[in-house]
Amino acid sequence: MRRRLLDRLLAARAAGQPVALVTDLGTGQQALVYPDAIEGETGLWDEDLALARQMLAEDRSGLVGESLFVQVNNPPLRLVVVGAVHIAQALAPLASLAGYAVTVIDPRGTFATEARFPGVALSTDWPDEALTALQPDARTAIVTLTHDPKLDDPALEAALGSAAFYIGALGSKKTHAKRLERLRSAGFQDNALSRIHGPLGLAIGAKTQAEIAVSILAQVIAARRGSLP
């Protein structure tokens, strides 16, 4: 690997730009493949280039044929938590440990504080505005935990308008049924509403805030890895 390529790779990562390092295992020559560009020592056949970009999108490093190795470098997955509540205090560090970049949104200033969420990115904007500003993409999971329709509903409406790979809303079956009714009245169709996991979390019998956080994160991971039960 050439130093210049290493510098470019690290610069792309620092900028949060997805990039794949493609190595010709026969010659050791390398190229950097971006979603819309390519640079480096080795050219690639169109077919191999398309595969490398597909692997980048799927976050999957591996071989292409016998002699090309594709190593994907994606920015961290993101978890946006609406509601700086008790469960969020357990979920934020847990998700961070699992590699997620976590943002907690709560316009109630007494909840979203540095003291309650040390080191976590916080927003005290209204949830729909905060979410829109964060531009959730297909590498983003969104969880609403406030129990308050005034906060959760606008967040869910913004979430449904995004490509987020996971949307979950805390609340009992009854609460969730009422929530879906309100969102239907707001004009959302059932196929869109089926994206919301509610009640959220995998059924592991979670009781404490930390256990509930584990069950939520487990469901987010299962969604990301295509392993939802």
Partner: peptide
């Protein structure tokens, strides 16, 4: 993602310190 970034950052630091560096990558 994060730990491999640390590997590359550390490798670059070693290069900056004037050391020769090799990189091993699991390919299969």
């Amino acid at each position: 993602t994060q730990d491999s970034e640390d590997v590359l950052l550390t490798a670059r630091q070693w290069l900056d310190d004037g050391k020769s560096v090799a990189l091993a990558t699991v390919i299969e």
